[in-house]
Design a protein around this nucleic acid. Structure first.
Lengths: 192, 192
DNA sequence: CTCGATTGTCTAGCAATGCTAGGATCGAGT
DNA sequence: ACTCGATCCTAGCATTGCTAGACAATCGAG
């Protein structure tokens, strides 16, 4: 059995290598530059190897998205934990979210802009994505206000952050005032 | 000179045909299905003809985006005009925006999600895009609140709407509660 | 009316893309 | 040492955006 175990270990290692390489390449040159050929060349295997791990490029994007979701959830929780009081937590949360999107644009795209073949908004949604939403909910639920469903409030807040992140990165909004926009958003949306 | 004029008229007509066809195809099957070959076939010309009107696919997307922006601006203004009072205007505006995005997903993508090679957030921004933003500003400026820059407020509001529109359409948010989310957004962001 | 030139259009082709079939190679277990 | 299955690669397909160069239609001058 040891032989089989070793093989599985090697396989898992190579899968991590593929994902790390895809992510790195995407961050460096954008997802368009992540072609199966280039990716295969960088991991020093031929293209068909990729297809023994993933169904195709879409699934690779999806896998990177899941890794990113876990990271984002951790970042959000860390930021919330470091802040005192509900209001400060929300501010920190918003900053952390926008910061993550700015620092990991390719991963963010994989999560929310590209089609990674992932299920959303239903029971089939992969755990890391549900957990990232939960991380938002934990801090936002307490400032939703009476009579407002926490999940609905979180969705709206999230959508606003998502809009700011994507429009800014696409050059639709001047980046200089990101901070002021985030402040305004928190000021209005968070009740005390 | 009349000959030349006729040719220019025909040329302009064909350009409109290209754009209308591209838009129709994109709305029916998505922008991925808008290939130069398919597009050329539908307009009953060969592919190179497309390149005598536009630099490439990107520029076609950009041109569709401009047409869409003009339409959206008109829709937003019509909705605002039909409402009484600042608060009702904002509600109507939000509804009209989300409605436009839902009814013209391909055009919306061309405007805000895809790369149409257009300039944004600077003085080179094409007029229709500036005007669409102006249409938002007209109704939103009056509910920004004291001491809040109207343009900044509009950007935040717009980003929130954009987030709702894109996340909903990408299946990230369940569509049933769109209306409630929009209400919550207006409730919180618009000051009276 | 004819002819040359210009304008316009098409056929054919390039390189790059995602993906796959089929054969070669390597190694585990007898 | 040998067999057989798993593993990997070479080669290739269809499709994409885009372009070069040949061909045809049309216009203006004589």
């Amino acid at each position: 059995m040891s032989v089989q175990e070793r093989k599985e270990r090697e396989r898992a290692g190579r899968e991590r290598l593929i994902l790390a390489t895809a992510r790195e390449l995407a961050e460096q040159q954008g997802w368009d530059a992540v072609t199966t050929r280039r990716l295969a060349e960088r991991i020093e295997y031929s293209q068909p190897v990729l297809y023994s791990h993933f169904r195709g490029k879409r699934e690779i994007i999806g896998a990177v998205a899941l890794v990113g979701a876990a990271e984002m959830a951790a970042s959000l929780r860390a930021a919330a934990r470091a802040a005192d009081g509900p209001r400060a937590r929300v501010t920190a949360l918003a900053r952390a979210y926008l910061d993550f999107a700015e620092r990991n644009p390719a991963v963010y795209d994989a999560m929310f802009r590209l089609d990674g073949g992932l299920a959303f908004a239903n029971e089939d949604t992969p755990e890391p994505l549900q957990d990232a939403f939960a991380a938002l909910l934990e801090s936002l639920g307490e400032v939703a206000g009476d009579g407002v469903h926490p999940a609905l409030f979180t969705e709206v807040f999230w959508a606003a952050l998502h809009g700011l992140a994507t429009l800014t990165r696409a050059g639709r909004l001047p980046p200089e005032e990101t901070e002021r926009r985030a402040e305004l958003l928190v000021d209005r949306l968070a009740l005390v």
